[in-house]
Each structure stands twice: as C-alpha cells, then as structure tokens.
Design a protein around this nucleic acid. Structure first.
Length: 923
RNA sequence: GCCCGAAUGGUGGAAUGGUAGACACGAAGGACUUAAAAUCCUUUGGCCAUUACCGGCUGUAUGGGUUCGAGUCCCAUUUCGGGUACCA
C-alpha cells in the first residue's frame, strides 16, 4: 500500500463525523479543558493559508489534552455580523444574510478539509436570533444596572432609584457621567423624562451626548479601537469628531478591575502592557483655578501638582463648556471664529497639522499658590474628552505647553535646578525644585517625586483640589447607523427609551428594501415596515457594533442550545472559563477589553462563575505573503531574469506565486497566465532559467501571492499542511509563507509510512524492542511532551523527523515502538496517525489513546564524554561511566595531566564541571 | 515622540550561560534509470590549508562590559517589525 493522502483523509474524516468522535458533553468524572480559537469573520475571499495557523496550533493542543485524559471543549463558530457583508449588499442588493451564509459554507468546507477536532454540534453564529437573543439580553441587563464604586460591582438600577427617593444623590457612590447634586425632594418632584435623564447618568448602558468618531463615508459612528490614525480600520475612510446622542457602555467604570485583573492572567507581558496603556491609569490631582472678576472656577487635572508655581497660562479645549463661560465680550468674535475653523477639520487633519494654534479668551485666572494672574487661552491641543477639558500650562516642563508659550510669547519659568529651557522643555520627573515658594507652601530644594506628593497633600488640605485617578479608557460607543447588526431591544415613548420585556426577545432584525440610510438621514432600519412595538411605539433604529456579538460568545459554546439562559449554571460551573485562547494580537485593545468587561459585568450579575474569561492566551503570528516579480524591459514584452536585470531598464511586475517554483518561473504557464503575456520573450540566466525576484508583503489578491489551503491539501494532504504550518517557525512569530520546503514534511510522512509498509507488504513485527529503539522513542516522548506544553511545535516536528531517521537506520519495525510513535504524532497529523494506528490492529480511535510517559532509564548513556578545557580552550576528551559525580569527573580529568596542581607551569585556580559537557580548568 | 518585540548561513529556523548553525528547504556532486520523476548516498557559515589522514583561523547587527566561558546577562548604538499618539 502506498501512502495516499486523499483516500486516508476522506476516509477518516467521514469516520470521525459518523461516530461523532469530537462531540463532548459534561462529564464530571473527567477534568475539563477549554480550548478556544478566536472565531473568524467569514469574508468573501475565503481562507488563505495564513488563517489556519492558530487553528492548527490549538487543535494540536486540544488533541494532546484529550489524550492526556481531559474532557476537552473545542468549539468553532462565526462572527457573522460585519461591515463587508453590508457594503456588498449596498452594491449588489443581495441580502447580507445570503452572502454571509454562503461565505460560512465556504469556510466550513475549507476548515473540514484540514481535519480539526471541533465539536460542530456547538457551532454558533452571531447573526442567529437564538444567539443574539443573549446579546440583547445582556444589553438590557446593562441598561438596568449601575456601577457601585463603593462595592466595586454592578448593581440593579432599582436600588439606586430607591436611594434617590430617600436621600437624593447625597449617599450615592456610582460611576457617573457628571457629578449631580439632587435632593430627594427634587428627585421625587421630577417628571418621567427628567428622571430618565438623571438615570442615564448612571446606567451601565446609557444614551449619551458624546463626542463620537463619525465616518461620513460609512455613514456610521465608530469606536476608538475601530479608528486608527484618523481613518476607519475597515475601508480607511476619514473620520471626524462630532457630538451625537448614542448608546454607550460604561466600560470606564471597570477600568481599575480591568487593570488589576491582568495580573492573574497567563498572557504575554507585551499584550498585558498594551492593555495597561490602553486603560491608561494616571494618578494626579484635580485643582481649581478661580477666574478673576467672576465666580467661575476652572477645574483642571494634572499629574504634576509640583509645577503649579510654573503655571503661566491656562488652556481650554475648544469643545469645553468653560469657553463660553469665561470668554469676554471683546474676544467673543475671535474665539467663535477659531472654534468654527477647528470644527471644519477632521481628526486626521488635526493630527497632520501640528502647527500651534489658539486664541486668547480675554479672561485671566488666578494661580492658587502664587496668586499671580495668568491668561486663559483656547487651543485644540487640549482634548475635551480627557480629564476636565482644561489644563494648567507649565511651559518649562511640558513640550506642548512650551511650543504654545513660544508661539504666543508667554513667560517660561524653570522649576528644576539646572534645567535648560532656552531651546526645549525639560519633561523628566527628576531633579531638585527651584522657584517654587509661595506665601503658604515651599517646595524649593525638594526632589520632584517628593514635591509632587507634598503639593498634592497641600492642595487637598487647603481645599483647592483633590487627589484623583484618571483613566484614558473611554466608554464604548455602542450604536451603529447600520443594517447588518443586532437590533437594540429598545423602544421610545414620549421621548423616553424603554427596554422590551425579556419575553419579547429576540427582537428580530427586520427586512428592508435597501441597505442605505433613509432620505431623511435615518439609519437603514428606518426603512423597515412596522418597526414598532405591539402597542405602536417606535423601535430603536441603530444596531449594535461588531464587538457586541463577540463579547460573550465563549460562554454560549458551553450550552449553545439553551433557550432559558445564555449558559446554564451547571454548564458554566463545569466548563468555567477558557483555559487556552488562541488568536491574533490585533484584538488587544478591542475584543479582549470588551470581552473582559462584558464578562465582569455578567460575573457581578451572578450569571457566570469566573471574573476573567480567558486564562491563558497565545497570539499566533501573521502569515505574510511572499510575492514574486518578473522584470519587464521597458516598452517591450521581453522579461529579463532577476540577476541580469541591472543591465536593462526594467519594471517589476507581480507574478502569480502559483506558477513559480523555488523562484524559478514556469515560462509556459506565464504565457498562458494572461493574454498580454502570450507572446512574452525571456532573457534567461544559467542557460535555461528565468529567476524571479521576491518580497515579503501582506497576503492579498492584488499581489498574486495568495496561497489557498485547499490547493495544498489537494496536492499534499491535510497532514502535510498541518505539519508544515507548524514547522515554519514558532506559532507566536510572524513569518512569510513559502510553499518551497513543504516537500520536507511530506517526505517525512512517506518515510514514516515506509516503516509500516513496503509496497503491499506489512513490515510491522511483534516482540520486544531493542534498547536502541527504546532510547529513540523515549527521547521523542520527552521532547514532544515538553514542546507541546511550551507551544514549541516546530522543534517537536524536527524531533519526529530525527526519530524516524533513527528508526529507519535501525530497521526498526517493532509494533510497540511504532504504536507509541503514532500516538505522539496523532495531534499533529491525525489522519495518517489514525490510519497507522489501525494498521497496528487497533479498532478504537487514536484520539483516545493514552499519551505515553517517558522513562529516564532508557535515556541513560553507558558512558559520558567530557571535553576538558584549559581556560576555556578545549584540550582533550575523557570518558567516564554514566552517573559519575562531578568530584570524580574532576579527579579523572586531572589524572590525565602530568601534575595535578600545575598546568603549563601555572597553578590551577579553579575547576568547573558542567554536567555531561565540559570540565574547565582555570589556571 | 513614547511603549513593546526582534536581528544567527543562500532560505525558514535550532541552541536551561557550557563544542553555534539541530531539523528542513535550496544548491552541488554521485547511485539507480533508455530518460525523467521518485528514492537513496555525500558535501554545504566564511576564509585558509590539503595527495590522504589530521587540520587552522574566523564567525550570531555594531561598540563596550560582566564571566573560567556570552547568540544567550548588562550598558550604549544602528536597523527592522508591532502598538499608541497632543492623555496634561
């Protein structure tokens, strides 16, 4: 029998399907293990060879854990809502559901060919009403909750209402939009609308007028993590800032818990660091600056309370409410003009244009420590959304303030001894304070760090400010003016939003005639007929964003068909949370923050038993494309080979990597590739070769460097694809895909096969294995077990290759040895392992074969060689029996020297014995 | 600008501070074959030496340092990749 991957792979894939080999159920007899891949968005382009990298890695780990006796949950599903399907629908009129379903079918057939051990009976799709019912449900719960900052957890809004009725806001400790001061009487006297508005200040999911990222081209708002460098991540369209009334999630309430939770997780330090930066905790103080000749006080936030004596002016964000309070009548026109100009710019333009700009308001504030009068400016370098939207400017020690001061010719007072501020500001937090003495506070001579502390204490003591912690993390904007997303379970009555009854969920996405906004500028759902409740109230027209459906999906896999709950208590208590999560690093500040937030909220609710969703996380690297080029001689249809191109004036042209082998072009295929190359001429090198150039780029259709896994599976088989993807390098590392080299792992499988068969003859022998063979296989068991635990799959594949070569050389066809080999190989190459397992006479599946343990006895050497070096230079070798203690080794080494105390006429200072390696004599 | 990560042959990549380059690709040579494919064997970091056997020097981005010993640890520099950006 020859190795025939097509026959073997289809046979075993059918067997696994028919026998439901990979379906799992709660089994309290066994320990659980939950391995999860980040589920894909099913794009129209299908999978390329880079997508399965992480799936293969997690599949290997799942199979390994299963063979170790764990009950492994390893599900898969689809993140089915998203912009591309909707954009496509706008262009073609095709319902996004239709294209999404098609794309999912394509993904599924591609995934099935690779032989994953997913339990497909648990598949979920975020666009499925039975799934998004629970997305809507969680949103309702958030609407009906507030965050209690004293208890540090989410609580029912009903309790807050009770408190408002009894004593107003006096005893409320809640995460809030703005600080409200309402008495119980005032509250009780409010009408429904006013009460609703007050509660919005506290709800976990609230309707708020916030500055949003508005993308006119997409016609929707975007979250901060959906925007990068002023353009939308999807599509790359410009984004502008705009105040809009939107649904928001109070993610910021969880900032501290999201930060602290990181310490307990087995994530890489760099990923944790990225999240810490995104959360952006900064400790500082809020301080009040009184405006001269008025009652107005400007509250600012600073981390450098020590620098108050160096404040020479103040700056307000253009959007700040303070602007209109302080601007004097004489300066009003100027300020208005400035703000109008700023508004016209997009975020991107504001970023590119780093020129200093600003305008004086005419107002002066009073420095609370020195008493000096300082001017108040408006400038767009101050952000409305962070801190209080107003700053105290210390030009000597902040580069932005410095630039502003220089531009407007404002005074710069150095506060740190030796700081030269003639050319640039001194931003470092070190040195001794100077020029910092006022009537009631003297910081001179103090170290900066001590001065910060002293200033904060002083400010709090005299009541001109308070110590405050600020976070960069913003609330998530949760409305999208789009069609293809989860509808909100919200209706409006007399201008007040209400939640539907839980019994009315899921609220299904309605049909529309077009996927565009209405003529009046309403979102697409405005086109839906009868988009009202049973008693005629208008339903919300926005839909939820992409991250809504992916925030709690891992919980749903535990209990995917439950109509009563997102996940039953029983299922949740058994499966707990994800033990191993595998996915790309691009979700570091989006999905992985939202998901943790969502999970913590559900934890506060008592709906789940773990407060972190993903215990261990591995970021697989990106597989880049490796493009090939041909070089066309200008104005001809002649192509010159890579190494000869310097002699000609050439244009590089991307060429399909699938007609290039080892950078050598198949010229006949090239002529057939495109009509314009039919009569192409070639200038060859080395007599007969056309060599192509190459570059590492993103894998994309336009660069003709996309390699489809289906083609690889068809040609070499799924097992070869799996082995090769892992063999390419460490899972976490990004690397270019290069199909050259795949023959190596394919040959390995064939060599393994040749240990079992020679033609039709079965070579497997019974009896006891040789000592040599035992050593080879136990070495392998040890290595592979260690490597899998460390996700170092590339080195385990090397170990497999070495072992097969050793067994081939030993002519070992022993059943006991081969059996162990096959069990070890099963996670990596499940089809061929299954086939060979049955060749060895088993009728169970290899997936359930127990993972072997290595025995150190077999690995022992009879004797050990040491290199004896003098001052690090190797001199001669010695051989001692295995297990000799270092002191004996030392003695043996020295016995070989004529004099044991002197070498080359110098005394021996030290002898270092490195186990199994080296004896170094230092003279 | 700031934060994180990386740099080893022609290529992908191995090396708990202990003989750098495992394993694989590619390349060169050879065997088998009418031929090709497939398979197998040998060589393969660079330089030098060589009839043969045995060799020698050098080498992990650059410059320093710690150490008996550094690809690995420390400091500085360069380059590349990723994240983030007026966050006060």
């Amino acid at each position: 029998m020859e190795y025939n991957h097509k026959d073997i792979e289809s046979r075993w894939q059918n067997y696994w399907r028919e026998n439901k080999t990979y379906e799992v159920n709660i089994n309290t007899e066994k320990p659980k293990f939950y391995v999860l891949d980040m589920f894909p968005y099913p794009s129209g382009a299908g999978l390329h060879v880079g997508h399965p990298l992480g799936y293969i890695a997690s599949d290997i780990y799942s199979r390994y854990k299963r063979q170790q006796g764990f009950n492994v949950l390893h599900p898969m599903g689809y993140d089915a809502y998203g912009l591309p399907a909707e954009q496509y629908a706008i262009q073609t009129g095709q319902h996004p559901e239709v294209t999404t379903t098609q794309n999912i079918a394509r993904y599924r057939s591609q995934l099935d060919k690779i032989g994953f051990c997913y339990d497909w009976s648990r598949e979920i799709r975020t666009c499925d009403p039975s799934y998004y019912k629970w997305t809507q449900w969680a949103f309702m719960k958030m609407f009906n909750s507030y965050y209690d900052t004293a208890k540090q957890k989410a609580m029912p809004i009903a309790e807050l209402i009770k408190e408002l009725e009894i004593s107003g806001t006096a005893n409320i400790h809640a995460a809030q939009g703005e600080e409200l001061n309402i008495t119980a009487d005032e509250w009780n006297g409010m009408d429904a609308k006013a009460k609703s508005d007050v509660l919005m200040n506290y709800r976990m999911a609230y309707l708020g007028n916030t500055m949003v990222n508005w993308c006119p081209k997409l016609g929707t708002v975007l979250a901060n993590d959906e925007v990068s460098e002023g353009v939308s991540i999807r599509g790359g369209y410009p984004v502008e800032q705009k105040v809009m009334c939107q649904w928001c999630l109070r993610v910021s309430a969880y900032a501290q818990r999201l930060l602290e939770g990181l310490d307990k997780l087995d994530w890489t330090d760099s990923l944790k660091e990225t999240q810490r930066n995104w959360i952006g905790r900064s400790e500082g103080a809020e301080m009040e600056f009184a405006v001269a000749d008025s009652d107005i006080k400007l509250t600012i936030f600073t981390t450098r309370a020590d620098t108050v004596f160096g404040v020479t002016f103040m700056v307000l964000a253009p959007e700040s409410e303070y602007v209109w309070q302080v601007t004097t009548p004489e300066h009003k026109a100027e300020v208005e003009e400035y703000i109008a100009a700023i508004k016209h710019k997009t975020e991107r333009e504001r970023m590119i244009d780093k020129k200093v700009s600003g305008v004086f308001t005419g107002a002066y504030a009073e420095n609370p420590l020195s008493g000096k009068k300082i001017p108040v400016y408006v400038s767009d370098y101050v952000l409305a959304g962070y801190g209080t939207g107003a700053i105290m400017a210390v030009p000597a020690h902040d580069s932005r303030d410095y630039a502003f001061a220089r531009h407007f010719d404002l005074p710069i007072i150095p506060l740190i001894e030796g700081a030269d501020v003639s050319e640039e500001s001194f931003d470092a937090k070190e040195g001794k304070m100077i020029n910092s003495c006022g009537p009631t506070l003297d910081l001179n001579g103090m170290d900066v760090k001590d001065a910060i502390k002293a200033a904060k204490e002083y400010v709090e003591k005299v009541g001109i400010g308070k110590v405050k912690v600020n976070y960069r993390l913003r609330d998530a904007i949760f409305s999208r003016q789009r069609y293809w997303g989860e509808p909100f379970p919200v209706y409006y009555k007399d201008g007040i939003p209400y939640m539907l009854d839980e019994k009315e969920l899921p609220l299904q996405l309605p049909e529309v005639d077009k996927y565009l906004p209405t003529e009046t500028g309403e979102p697409p759902l405005g086109r839906a007929k009868n988009w009202v409740t049973t008693d005629g109230c208008a339903l919300e027209l926005c839909t939820m964003p992409g991250f809504a459906g992916s925030s709690a999906y891992y919980l749903r896999y535990m209990d995917p068909h439950n109509d009563e709950a997102l996940v039953s208590r029983e299922a949740n208590e058994y499966w707990q949370n994800v033990d191993l999560y595998v996915g790309g690093t691009e979700h570091a500040t989006g999905h992985l923050i939202y998901s943790r937030f969502w999970n913590k909220f559900l934890y506060d609710l008592g709906a789940v038993c773990k407060d972190e969703p993903f215990q261990k996380l591995i970021n697989q690297g990106m597989i880049q494309g490796r493009s090939n080029f041909v070089y066309r001689v200008k104005d001809t249809n002649t192509f010159v080979s890579y190494n000869l191109r310097k002699d000609y004036d050439v244009t590089p042209i991307h060429v399909d990597v699938n007609i290039v082998t080892n950078d050598v072009l198949d010229t006949d295929k090239f002529r057939a590739w495109r009509p314009e190359f039919n009569d192409a001429q070639f200038i060859l090198e080395d007599g007969d070769k056309y060599v192509c150039g190459y570059a590492v780029e993103k894998m994309s259709k336009s660069m003709f460097n996309v390699v489809n896994p289906d083609d690889i599976v068809d040609r070499y088989g799924a097992d070869t694809l799996r082995l090769y993807e892992m063999f390419l390098g460490p899972v976490e590392q990004s690397k270019p895909w290069d199909t050259n080299g795949i023959d190596g792992v394919n040959r390995f499988i064939k060599r393994l096969w040749n240990l079992f068969y020679k033609g039709d003859e079965n070579l497997v022998t019974d009896g006891e294995p040789t000592k040599e063979a035992l050593k080879s296989i136990h070495k392998l068991i040890k290595k592979v077990t260690q490597d899998i635990e460390n996700f170092s799959y590339n080195t385990s594949i090397s170990a497999f290759m070495i072992c097969v070569n050793e067994l081939t050389q030993q002519k070992c066809h022993n059943a006991k040895i081969l059996e162990q080999f096959v069990i070890l190989l099963a996670p990596f190459a499940p089809h061929v392992a299954e086939e060979l397992w049955h060749t060895l006479g088993h009728d169970t599946t290899v997936c359930d074969a127990q993972w072997p343990k290595h025995n150190e006895e077999y690995l022992k050497e009879d004797s050990v060689k040491y290199t004896v070096s003098v001052n690090g230079k190797p001199r001669f070798n010695i051989e001692v029996p295995s297990g000799t203690v270092p002191a004996e080794v030392e003695k043996t080494a020295l016995a070989n020297e004529a004099a044991a105390k002197w070498i080359d006429g110098k005394p021996i200072r030290k002898v270092i014995v490195v186990p199994n390696k080296i004896v170094n004599i230092v003279i």
